[in-house]
Design a protein around this nucleic acid. Structure first.
Lengths: 250, 250
DNA sequence: CGTAGCTTTGATGTAGGTCAAGAAATGTGG
DNA sequence: CCACATTTCTTGACCTACATCAAAGCTACG
């Protein structure tokens, strides 16, 4: 009975699958994960899930839709730190460190399950395997942010854009939301600008250049690769940091 | 006996103290930490501790000296992801994910203790409190990198520099290497440039401007605050993300 | 079917990059 | 303690990638 239960979580939850890929979870761990899914919530576009500065925010596992977490500066400028896709764990840092350094907001209508501090998941001494898996998940998140850092620090606008869209494509493919031809992308050019440290105007020009170079088209909320190999080459894109083949800990 | 042992670790190791601040560690945890310090190594400037792309690198706890971890791009450009100061855990991601996405290199001669995969510290099911502490440490690291991301994406060169040097000062003060007057800083202007996504030439100009504005002096490997309050104001510097007051998990 | 948010484009401005060259520091061997 | 080499710093002249400002055409949705 319990075993059947567990299998279903792995089938239905990309989040559980990801943790599983890090650590060989046991029945009881899967049961804990499975429990989480009973507290689902829906959020519309325009609201906020977590607010910058909020004390003791919840964490969430994103079930469907796209989410952005961003920081707003004193002068009104905005920097998108990260985009979250289905299966992603959102706000673990804010939840455990008990205050949020950024705002988290749906880009599309979303469904997510809320993780409360009282959840067994966070009772780490009782769920050491889950704690380990969360650690590894957080570390892989770091790899993503690191890549973003390199984007902002040392890549030109064109390369930055190409790299960013390729990375998004890879992440989406992992959860079955993209094919090798392209993917649907609800981001506005303002979103891209705020993620890439550019201006919306410049984003537009860069996208045109990529299109005219036959590398990639972003129109009508759809990203279509022109010449994938050339694009990868142009962007200097390496997938290594996205795939985790051989987790270390047992 | 063991208790005496444990207390010594807390006294002598800023790393142990940090983990302790996250999670109420027990005797056995401290013993594990204490054990680590038996395998110390020294590294000179000019070598590499971990190499970009390396498989199965070790992690390290930095005992003394400064370390930079950076990424080198195909065109030779360099982006420093993070600086590591005494007490910092280095390369946890690389070690657990089993491949390094960046090079780690001493800026000054350093001493560090190497953490091997076989160390009890990494046997997370046996040391759940340490696993939790490591998770929290990793999450706080994320906060730092996030701040760096905002620097690169949305702050002007001047503000970026001010913010970065203030942050360094705070981190150094935590381990007793800075006062409210300033601190010794072995970074060259090339280092600053590669950390901040700028050119060494421009770094020089920015430093001059900060000096002429009476905000801060960086000369002869020494950072001296001019007007600390004005500097904090100019940089929009908030210390929140650095201090962890009330850890969540028991 | 109007209005608010996106996208596109042009003209112009500027922060920061590039190139170059001399001055300080710093280190090294004698 | 000094000559010499090497790295680092500093400054000037000039350039370019991206920002800013402005305005017109889309899209979509109430």
């Amino acid at each position: 009975m319990i075993e059947h239960h567990s299998l279903r979580v792995l089938q239905e939850s990309p989040f559980a699958r990801r943790l599983w890929s890090f650590v060989q979870l046991k029945e009881e761990d899967l049961a804990v994960l499975s429990d989480l899914y009973r507290r689902r919530r829906a959020f519309p576009v325009g609201g906020e899930i977590i607010h910058q500065g909020q004390i003791d925010p919840s964490a969430f596992v994103l079930i469907s839709g796209w989410v952005a977490s961003y920081r707003v500066l004193a002068d009104g400028k905005r920097q998108i730190m990260d985009l979250h896709l289905p299966g992603d764990l959102i706000g673990l840092r804010s939840a455990l460190l008990r205050t949020s350094d950024c705002t988290v907001e749906p880009i599309t209508p979303i469904k997510a399950c809320e993780l409360l501090r009282s959840d067994t998941l966070f009772d780490f001494t009782r769920t050491p395997r889950l704690a380990t898996a969360l650690l590894l998940d957080a570390l892989q998140d770091q790899a993503l942010i690191n890549e973003h850092l390199v984007d902002l620090g040392r890549r030109s606008a064109g390369v930055r854009m190409a790299h960013f869209l390729l990375e998004l494509g890879s992440r989406l493919r992992r959860v079955g939301m993209a094919t090798c031809a392209g993917y649907d992308c609800p981001l506005s050019q303002y979103h891209l600008a705020d993620a890439l440290g550019l201006t919306a105007v410049h984003v537009n020009r860069v996208l045109r250049e990529l299109r005219e170079a036959g590398l990639l088209t972003f129109q009508r909320s759809r990203v279509t690769y022109g010449n994938y190999d050339a694009l990868v080459q142009y962007a200097g894109f390496e997938t290594g940091y996205l795939d985790q083949e051989r987790p270390l800990v047992a």
